[in-house]
């Protein structure tokens, strides 16, 4: 559970102005992920609704080929990135774990979640201070991002396995997903809806980060660049 040193860290947050929260691998992962997910959303959209048709010989173009390649390559980046990130949750600092393990069974966590909702509803005058994620942020990161990205990886590699063929690693590991959803077309539809869920997540994520940076008297955006959470009070 809680280490003595970590408790001191938290206690110090009341008196010191900054805490080192996000270690370099976490920050690097965040921005690589942001780029890869952008590529995935854009190329994924154009796989579902392709660009206007190309004229001339088929051998002169490879537009869908390149779009699909970019999609698959970015998909590998996100999947491998997540595995590395999970590894880092074990070996990194305490804040590296909170993404995966919200304290769902702690009453106080739910009460402070309510406080954070009140803060967003303009009912609470001040937010509480957290070195890592506040309960609402943690819940959203877990439900939207962790669950969402795992869903996209599983459905994505199931569809990828269709192209690699039966007996390929992707088919062996994720091929069961297709009959689970019904048929290939259903998996396509859910994967497509997942893209919009991720787009919605990005809108809320960016907004919340900027808003808290402005309104809660602590750093959010620069924290994911420098790693330090700054407190103005």
């Amino acid at each position: 559970m809680l280490q003595y040193g970590e408790r001191q860290d938290a206690a110090r947050s009341a008196t010191v102005k900054s805490i080192y929260v996000y270690e370099a691998p976490v920050r690097l992962w965040h921005w690589v992920n942001a780029l890869a997910i952008t590529v995935l959303a854009v190329t994924g959209y154009f796989i579902g609704s392709p660009l206007p048709t190309m004229s001339g010989e088929a051998s002169d173009h490879f537009v869908m080929g390149y779009i699909r390649f970019a999609h698959f390559a970015a998909g590998y980046v996100v999947a491998i990135g997540l595995l590395v990130r999970i590894y880092w949750a074990f070996v990194g600092n305490a804040y590296a774990r909170e993404l995966f393990l919200p304290p769902f069974f702690t009453g106080q966590w739910w009460r402070e979640l309510l406080h954070e909702i009140r803060w967003y509803a303009f009912l609470a005058p001040y937010p509480l201070k957290y070195a890592g994620h506040n309960p609402l942020a943690q819940l959203m990161m877990f439900m939207f991002f962790v669950v969402g990205v795992v869903f996209m990886i599983v459905t994505g590699f199931a569809l990828y396995g269709e192209g690699l063929g039966q007996g390929s690693w992707a088919d062996t590991m994720f091929g069961w997903v297709i009959p689970l959803f019904g048929q290939s077309q259903d998996v396509h539809t859910w994967h497509h809806l997942g893209m919009w869920a991720m787009a919605t997540f990005v809108i809320l994520h960016v907004y919340a980060a900027i808003r808290e940076d402005v309104a809660s008297r602590q750093s959010l955006v620069s924290t994911m660049v420098s790693g330090f959470r700054m407190f103005k009070d």
Binding site: Q108, L128, A131
Partner: peptide, 8 residues
């Protein structure tokens, strides 16, 4: 918040 311990 969280007695300073969440995220630990």
């Amino acid at each position: 918040g969280g007695n300073g311990q969440w995220g630990k």
